Deep mutational scan, measured.
Amino acid sequence: MTSCHIAEEHIQKVAIFGGTHGNELTGVFLVKHWLENGAEIQRTGLEVKPFITNPRAVKKCTRYIDCDLNRIFDLENLGKKMSEDLPYEVRRAQEINHLFGPKDSEDSYDIIFDLHNTTSNMGCTLILEDSRNNFLIQMFHYIKTSLAPLPCYVYLIEHPSLKYATTRSIAKYPVGIEVGPQPQGVLRADILDQMRKMIKHALDFIHHFNEGKEFPPCAIEVYKIIEKVDYPRDENGEIAAIIHPNLQDQDWKPLHPGDPMFLTLDGKTIPLGGDCTVYPVFVNEAAYYEKKEAFAKTTKLTLNAKSIRCCLH
Rank of each mutant, 00 (worst) to 15 (best):
A202L: 02
I308R: 00
V229I: 09
P217F: 04
G237M: 05
L35R: 14
E211F: 13
F135D: 01
R56C: 14
T26V: 03
T44S: 14
T125A: 09
C311V: 14
E178R: 14
Y289W: 11
K32C: 05
I177H: 02
D85Q: 08
K306C: 07
P260M: 04
P149I: 01
T277S: 07
Y231E: 01
E89P: 05
Y88E: 14
L312Q: 14
N37A: 12
K300P: 10
T20P: 03
T145M: 11
I177D: 02
I226V: 08
K163M: 13
N210W: 04
C124A: 12
I177A: 03
G258S: 15
S131F: 06
E211W: 07
V186Q: 08
L303C: 06
K163Y: 14
G101W: 05
R56D: 11
C4W: 14
Q42W: 11
K172N: 10
V229E: 07
V14D: 02
G185P: 02
V222N: 01
G101T: 06
P160H: 07
F140V: 12
E293W: 14
S161C: 14
S3F: 07
G22R: 12
N77D: 14
L150P: 01
G237Q: 09
I177N: 03
L203V: 04
I220R: 00
I16M: 05
C124H: 04
T53D: 01
T125C: 10
I52S: 01
L99R: 13
N37V: 11
S307W: 05
I96C: 09
H208L: 13
I239R: 09
R168V: 14
T53S: 09
N37R: 10
E9S: 12
C152G: 01
R91P: 11
L75P: 11
E106M: 12
G27S: 10
S120N: 01
D130V: 02
F215M: 05
I111A: 05
T125V: 11
D230H: 13
Q248N: 04
K253V: 06
Q94C: 13
G176V: 10
T298H: 01
H207K: 15
F29G: 06
I157K: 11
C67S: 07
G45K: 07
N37F: 15
I65F: 15
D266T: 08
P160D: 10
C218Y: 00
E129Q: 15
T62N: 14
E84N: 07
I41A: 04
W252F: 13
G180C: 03
L115Y: 02
D249F: 02
E211T: 12
Y109K: 01
I65N: 06
C67Y: 09
G267Y: 07
L128S: 01
F17H: 05
R233I: 14
Q184P: 15
F17Q: 05
H21S: 11
D104Y: 14
T167F: 10
V31K: 00
L136K: 01
V31N: 00
N210D: 04
I11G: 03
L303M: 05
R91K: 11
C67W: 08
W252G: 12
N97H: 10
D114R: 04
C67L: 08
E47K: 14
K80I: 13
A15C: 06
H208V: 09
L126K: 00
N246F: 12
P280R: 02
K291I: 06
L25T: 08
L301A: 05
M198Y: 00
K292S: 15
F135W: 05
H116S: 10
S131K: 07
V48M: 05
L25A: 15
R132K: 13
H21D: 04
R233H: 08
Y279D: 01
G237S: 07
L136P: 01
A287K: 11
E178C: 09
I6Y: 10
T269Y: 05
R233Y: 07
Q42K: 12
Y153S: 07
A294T: 01
E24T: 02
R71K: 12
S169Y: 07
N77A: 15
R71Q: 14
N284K: 02
Y88V: 07
I111M: 07
L46V: 10
I112R: 03
T299A: 12
T277D: 10
T299D: 13
E89R: 04
G185T: 04
L147E: 00
K81N: 10
D249N: 07
P254Q: 06
E84I: 09
T53N: 06
V14P: 01
A57D: 04
D266K: 08
I11D: 02
E106K: 11
I72T: 07
Y231G: 02
L35H: 12
M198H: 00
L126A: 03
H141P: 00
H256K: 11
G274P: 05
D104S: 15
H201G: 09
I206R: 00
Y231W: 10
D204Y: 00
G22D: 08
S146T: 06
T20L: 02
C67T: 11
N121S: 08
D74M: 10
Q248W: 02
G274K: 04
I270E: 05
H208P: 00
S161Q: 12
T20V: 03
L203W: 01
N210F: 03
E40A: 05
F100P: 06
F17N: 02
I270H: 05
K291P: 09
H98D: 12
L25H: 05
L78Y: 14
P183D: 02
I6P: 08
T53M: 07
